[in-house]
Write a protein that binds this DNA or RNA. Structure first.
Length: 192
DNA sequence: AGGTAGATCTCCT
DNA sequence: GGAGATCTACCTT
């Protein structure tokens, strides 16, 4: 029995709140699914200079200004695609970058798509990796994530976890803002 | 184990 | 013309 799909109202609130709330939810695309374990908020409004929307709307970024609960997929450094989920009410910019997933289903398919990954932990442990592993491309830019092939669901069973808040990764502007959210799983069993 | 180079799209100066 | 919300391969310790 699957968890319910997150409704559009889930996304229609402040971006940082959505980023935090997405931790522990399950991203599903086709036959693959993974638990969201790391997110970053990119704010609209112009104060956040690291956001793609900092200098207004462009053809690429117009979906971020649109209704919440949609996907924004963009190409970074010419090679890798990154998945964002649009937050805030229609007309207000703001999106959440999905930075890392813990694979749940379709792991064999993910391995096939990323043959160089060393283990489960490497399959979707970065923004560019997780889009490759789940088969997400710019073809999914602008799609509705409250219905269709690409959706976000409640987890099947509730789990308790700590949330770590840190500055965002890989940017130089506004790098001091605490807008990165990481699921901190208490692992007493990890041995190397 | 850790650092660096290379690949090559979109938007701004 | 060049930086950027990155990842991998190929170096050197």
């Amino acid at each position: 029995m699957k968890g319910r799909i997150l409704p559009r109202s889930f996304y229609a609130r402040p971006t940082a709140e959505v980023a935090r709330a997405l931790l522990g939810k399950v991203l599903v695309h086709g036959a693959t699914a993974g638990t969201i374990v790391e997110t970053e908020a990119y704010l609209g409004g112009g104060d956040d200079l690291a956001a793609h929307t900092a200098r207004g709307m462009t053809p690429r970024t117009q979906v971020i200004f649109g209704p919440p609960g949609h996907a924004y997929v963009y190409l970074i450094y010419g090679m890798y695609e990154c998945l964002n989920l649009v937050a805030e009410p229609d007309g207000t910019p703001g999106c959440v970058l999905i930075r890392a997933l813990a694979p749940v289903t379709g792991i064999e398919l993910m391995r096939k798509r990323r043959p160089k990954a060393r283990g489960i932990g490497d399959l979707a442990s970065g923004p560019g990796k997780l889009t490759l592993a789940m088969g997400i491309t710019r073809a999914q830019n602008g799609v509705d994530v409250t219905r269709g092939a690409l959706v976000v669901r409640e987890p099947r069973e509730e789990s308790r976890f700590e949330i770590l808040v840190t500055p965002r990764i890989g940017i130089s502007k506004c790098a001091d803002l605490p807008l990165r959210f990481v699921m901190e799983q208490e692992m007493a069993n990890s041995r190397s």
